[in-house]
Amino acid sequence: MTLPFELLRSGYPYYMTLGQRRVTSNPVDIGFGKENVYVLTRGGLGNEVRVINWEDENLGTRGGASLFQWPAALLVDEDENLYVTDEANHKVVVMDKDGEHINTWGEKGSEPGQLNRPSGMSFDAEGNIVLSDAMNSRIQRFTRDGKHLQAFGEFGDGEGELNMPWGLTVDQFGDIFVADWKNDRVQRFTSEGEFKSAIGSHGTEKGEFRRPSSVAVDGHGDIYVSDWQNDRVQLFNRDERYIQSFHGNASLSRSGKQYILSNLVTLRLRAEGDFEKTQRLNAPMMVKVDDQFRLFITDFGNHRIQIYQKDAVELSETEIAPKMRNPILFTT
């Protein structure tokens, strides 16, 4: 596993939107099967896993109130088993792809292996589950069937300390990136749980956060942070330098278009409306990236998934000038 020496960043165009209200209602997380897209929903319009496909067809739901109350995060394994954290009942619920309940593990407490509001989850390279144990201000690692392997972190705002962590991810080198929610930063740990670095602080400027809710890292080492209360996703390169922000460029999803075309009044109202704001993100909760460098944002407040496609050329060391010590104005 190596990273390219540098990138020519051509751009990061908007690619497409999936879902709509009453289908992918209040989406909090997303996962992918071979053909299916699994969207975890939580709120007044549904607490369940919604299954759709790339044609944006509605294929039904999995799970629901009988299995979990406050679903926070979703993982999909290679057999398309679905893992859902339940913050209200301090457990992880496992279903197969058809929604058959397979397993539930976890209990409330603060001892190692116990949980207090588990939220974000990620698989590590071995397929174990790393999760945020939010109210215990720590990160824990479990096997898929709930055997406890590791715990690190404690309450505080110093280096390596956490305050209600939410989303997290494990990169290809095993580093763990945590959205340290109440501390308005992202922290990076080694796989052993040693603090490596921190990104961001409280604010609304570039590189600052208001309650970051999740983090993702792509095959170039680029870091994506859903800056939840600033209604944007920020991109940092592997050196943790700010690159750009995504504020939302949504267009109508396939199902949304079909919906509107069958409603004459809705068509009329849209014809009168101001569209600027319809593209924007509202409380983006989770970011995910796949191996094709597509960025997925669960646009929670707008009941949809916004997808972006990275366009970049990988450069080797000989294809780019060396780093410069000083900035220059002579750039012609």
Partner: peptide, 13 residues
């Protein structure tokens, strides 16, 4: 007042 956009497909504005 300004005409708001419809509820569907992405919620109220």
């Amino acid at each position: 007042f300004e005409q708001p956009l419809p509820l569907y497909p992405y919620g109220h504005y």
